[in-house]
Design a binder for these strands. Structure first.
Lengths: 195, 195
DNA sequence: TTTATTTCTGAACCGTCGTTCATTTATAAA
DNA sequence: TTTATAAATGAACGACGGTTCAGAAATAAA
């Protein structure tokens, strides 16, 4: 029998991230993804069920990673709630900084998923945000954070702001130096929600 | 000769907002838009050059309106900088609250435009945000706002947060009552950036 | 009325990919 | 070597939907 050559799954995923990010999901062509991944068009279908499956696999891999990272921050008991919130924000930046194409894809296509309540991706997404909410919860209970702010609103406000700045950074890294971005966001969040 | 029946342009635009918002731009069908607008498929092309033209016209109308509204707030001299910032946030909420379909369309498709620097829509978008930056500028100069925060970052953080909450509200109005959303956002922003 | 002109219609056209599959290629076992 | 089987290929298929356009419908002018 024949042996698999290299890691085609990963090559295809990387190519897909690149093409989806640049063109947007709908305008991306499988043939172009295949070309960049150095495989034949048809080979994509050996590893992925469909174009959509490719997108879903990319996103779910991302969420699983993010969830595991922020969970481990939440679980630490040597950090204050505000440090955990900082860590949460840092985690998001770290993951996307490592791959700006992925960041771009994420901010462009994620909004389209929010609507259909219970698809797999939204479940993961909610798991992720739930940890953010738990951190805020903890801060409120320890009388560090303002308890008059709605937690869901607070968490989503921060999330939206972070996402948008990641987007701008991914498009134009020079205009939005990530260190300053992180620093300012953390400052506003900290000052905005602590008592 | 024949007389035009009713306001087809507006009917088509309203139908397009509805269908684009629900399905997303790429999955929306001109034939469905036409059906909802009560015109024949071909009639859409009497008033709009293409599917894309339809989307662009919707967005540019929106930006023109928003720009005019926030400009008039910025120009008032009976408001403090923080009141202007509140007014800016209120304006965005007011416009989208009046049309949740439009809000949904906006948050879903706007991210796709940010990339190609100098298309018409991005110019409008930047005009809009520039006014937000001017307000922040003013606040800094009057020693009301923290001058250590980067203005572009601050403005975009707020913008991203507001946009995301609008998105959630548009999907699920009951879970995100706009009055509480506005109130919390304004609180965080005010506390976060004032001295 | 009849005619001219504008508006409107919707079936058909046509280009574009996502997807399939008959064929080829590579390697492990015999 | 030869054979069997898994992996890979890419041309061709087929569905979909944006766009077109020949004709129909409506109304103003003649």
């Amino acid at each position: 029998m024949r042996k698999k050559e290299g890691n085609k799954v990963q090559d295809i995923i990387n190519a897909a991230i690149e093409v989806f990010a640049k063109q947007g999901y709908h305008e991306a062509k499988i043939s172009e993804i295949a070309a960049i991944a150095n495989v034949a068009t048809g080979s994509v279908y050996l590893y992925f069920e469909s174009k959509e499956d490719l997108l879903v696999k990319i996103f779910s891999g991302l969420w699983v990673k993010l969830i595991s990272l922020v969970k481990s921050i939440y679980d630490r008991d040597d950090l204050s709630s505000i440090e955990k919130l900082d860590g949460f924000i840092d985690t998001v930046f770290d993951v996307f900084t490592a791959n700006s194409k992925l960041a771009l894809l994420f901010v462009k296509e994620q909004p389209h998923f929010l609507q259909d309540k219970d698809n797999k991706l939204n479940i993961l997404y909610n798991n992720f945000l739930e940890i953010g909410e738990k951190i805020i919860d903890e801060g409120v209970n320890k009388n560090l954070f303002n308890r008059n702010l709605d937690k869901k609103i607070t968490k989503n406000f921060i999330y939206g702001g972070v996402r948008h700045l990641l987007h701008l950074w991914a498009i134009n890294p020079n205009e939005y130096p990530l260190n300053k971005v992180r620093q300012d966001i953390k400052y506003i969040v900290k000052k905005g929600i602590t008592l």
